[in-house]
Design a protein around this nucleic acid. Structure first.
Lengths: 156, 156
DNA sequence: GTTCCTGCAAAGGTTTTGCACCATA
DNA sequence: TATGGTGCAAAACCTTTGCAGGAAC
């Protein structure tokens, strides 16, 4: 739950955050950020576009995509569960987790013991019934830390 | 790491698993499953298609998609970090996690204390440098457990 | 005034769909 | 033989890109 004052604080600080990141402050960026800061709904780019259009009728969906991508890159926003565009499949269906390289997109198995499986099958206070937990550790794989950066979207 | 015998066992059991799930066993399904069971690489549909084509030159990419979707639905395969197709954004950049409803696609914040953040920033034995951990709990949201199933891809 | 951003439109990539033919059971 | 799966092609969908005009600093 996000309180009213937290929202206002975020919105008030946004211009400063932008300038610190070397970004210009525009009405489009403020509208997109304000919309996201005011909701818990994790909207899609399309939904954000629809929400800001009443205030900025001339804004384009492409601009929304550019703003989201840029703010995510600067760490001002977060893209939820972001893998590279294509889906990835795994024949292991038992509980295990994955590492995802932010450089090359490679996905590897993570054999961690720290699987927070304790609350699967139990109803949470919000009424959500957990069925399966997925942990994705983002970071740099061995190759990308050492050798030159491989091409994106490689399958290996 | 998947050992040779584990792979062979999975491949050998696949026809039985299929029939138990009410699915016919076809060369295309066997090829797709065998390829996935034999690798740790979490390939994309395109990569799977390329890998099975030498054995089944007539197979189509559409069929690969259908097989993957179906086997994932039956729990025989796993789609890694599967959200509905569109991206989702969040203005909260501090460590927190998400629940994703498998029925309606709704994403909500999860204020769990059990954040496995202990190994962020430390190199793992495989050479992977973790930067950020993302936990996605799949399950059923309150509305989908009680009321009728809402439309997919809703933003609320 | 310079730099960077926006809006538009087109293109790119991924995934889904419909249907006639074919294989499995 | 009946059911369900495949192959093909088209379409749908999401996202990226290029560029000319415009806004922020």
């Amino acid at each position: 739950m996000v309180t009213q004052t937290e929202i206002e604080k975020k919105i008030k600080n946004f211009p400063t955050i932008c300038r610190q990141a070397g970004l210009k402050v525009t009405p489009q960026r403020m509208a997109v950020y304000n919309m996201l800061a005011s909701t818990d709904s994790h909207p899609t780019p399309e939904a954000i576009y629809a929400a800001v259009r009443p205030d900025l009728p001339a804004i384009s969906l492409g601009t929304v995509y550019k703003i989201l991508d840029l703010l995510n890159l600067k760490g001002i926003l977060l893209k939820v569960s972001s893998l590279d565009q294509a889906a990835r499949y795994d024949a292991r269906v038992t509980a295990h987790h994955h590492t995802a390289c932010t450089q090359c997109g490679r996905i590897e198995d993570l054999n961690a013991d720290s699987v927070p499986a304790e609350f699967v099958g139990e109803e949470s206070p919000t009424g959500f019934l957990p069925e399966r937990i997925e942990v994705l550790v983002h970071g740099l794989c061995r190759d990308c830390r050492h050798g030159p950066t491989p091409a994106r979207y490689q399958t290996k």
